[in-house]
Structure formats: structure tokens, C-alpha cells
């Protein structure tokens, strides 16, 4: 159970170095990246919010500080200026980095279950609820109380009214 700090300390130093590099170079969308055309810029922002930064843990390139995220933001803008549609820009990135970079997974064989899942779950649940109602209609006759239960109930009721009187 004993350990020395040296190994972890070194690892941390290394990690910190990497982090400093990543962070000191850029910081989310920088003013020099912004396009002059506000319509294109708005589209660029929207796309970059749906593109995952490949080096970060779980961040869109739009809010990531990583240098690669900045490059990708610039690529997105270059493609838009070149006349690509939003879809084409996303495909351009997915062709290079895979569907991994798309926060909106494309609908295809491997994702049918994902996209249909919530609806399917609701339908199955709905069927369950339907059978619940049908089943409960069938056993309409309530079982009468057993003698012990009846006496317990009487006692409880008596107890309750007793308390109320004392109020």
C-alpha cells in the first residue's frame, strides 16, 4: 500500500506542461478567427458547437482551448467561405476524423437503435401500461378484508378518532 510521490509527481509535471501548452496558445473562439460575413460566422459558430474536439475529453471545438480545435474552427470557416453547405463541412471533418467528431451522430445502420431507442422504449412502455389497464379491469371484484385485517382497521380508525378528540 505504500507508494512514493516521485512517479506521480513527474507524471503531474508532464501533464501540467502539456496543459500549459494547450491552454496558453489559444482560448475558444478568438477575434482574429471571426469572419466578416455575419451570416457565415453564425453558421460557423453553429457548426463548431456540434463538432467535437478530437484531443479534448468532451468539448466542442467552439469552446475548446486546444490548438487543434482552433485549427478546426479555421477549417470550418475556410470551407464555408469556399461555399460548402453545413452538411458538407461536417462531412469534410468526419471524412478525416470519423463520426467521432460529430456530436449529432449521423443516422445509419449502426445508429438506428440509438435514434429509435427512445421512441421504442415509450411504445413498449405504452403497451405495458395498456395491458396493465386491461388486466386490472378483469379482476374488478376486490377481495374482501380478512377478519384480522378488518379488526386491525377498526382499531386504527378508533385510534385515529381518539387522537382527533384529544386535539
Amino acid at each position: 500500500m505504500r507508494a512514493t510521490i516521485n512517479a506521480t509527481g513527474l507524471g503531474l509535471l508532464f501533464f501540467t506542461l502539456m496543459l500549459l501548452m494547450a491552454i496558453n496558445l489559444a482560448h475558444a473562439v478568438e477575434p482574429d478567427e471571426i469572419l466578416d460575413d455575419p451570416v457565415l460566422e453564425a453558421r460557423a459558430r453553429e457548426i463548431s458547437q456540434e463538432v467535437r474536439c478530437p484531443v479534448c475529453q468532451n468539448e466542442p471545438i467552439d469552446s475548446s482551448n486546444a490548438e487543434l480545435a482552433r485549427e478546426l474552427r479555421l477549417v470550418v470557416r475556410e470551407r464555408l467561405v469556399a461555399g460548402d453547405s453545413d452538411e458538407q463541412v461536417k462531412n469534410y471533418l468526419a471524412d478525416r476524423y470519423g463520426d467521432f467528431v460529430l456530436f449529432r451522430p449521423p443516422v445509419k445502420t449502426t445508429t438506428y437503435l440509438l435514434w429509435a431507442g427512445p421512441g421504442l422504449f415509450f411504445l413498449l412502455g405504452g403497451v405495458g401500461v395498456f395491458f396493465f389497464y386491461r388486466g386490472s379491469r378483469r379482476q374488478k371484484v376486490p377481495t374482501p378484508l380478512s377478519p384480522e385485517e378488518q379488526s386491525k382497521l377498526d382499531q386504527l380508525l378508533a385510534d385515529k378518532s381518539g387522537k382527533e378528540d384529544s386535539a
Partner: peptide, 16 residues
């Protein structure tokens, strides 16, 4: 073996 995907806000906006 279906590859890597990311599921982010757009998915939840459309389902949740």
C-alpha cells in the same frame, strides 16, 4: 466493433 461515435446536445435536443 461499430466504430466510435459521440453523442452530444443535438441528440438530446431531438429525443429528450
Amino acid at each position: 466493433g461499430g466504430g466510435r461515435v459521440s453523442i452530444g446536445p443535438p441528440f438530446y435536443n431531438n429525443t429528450f
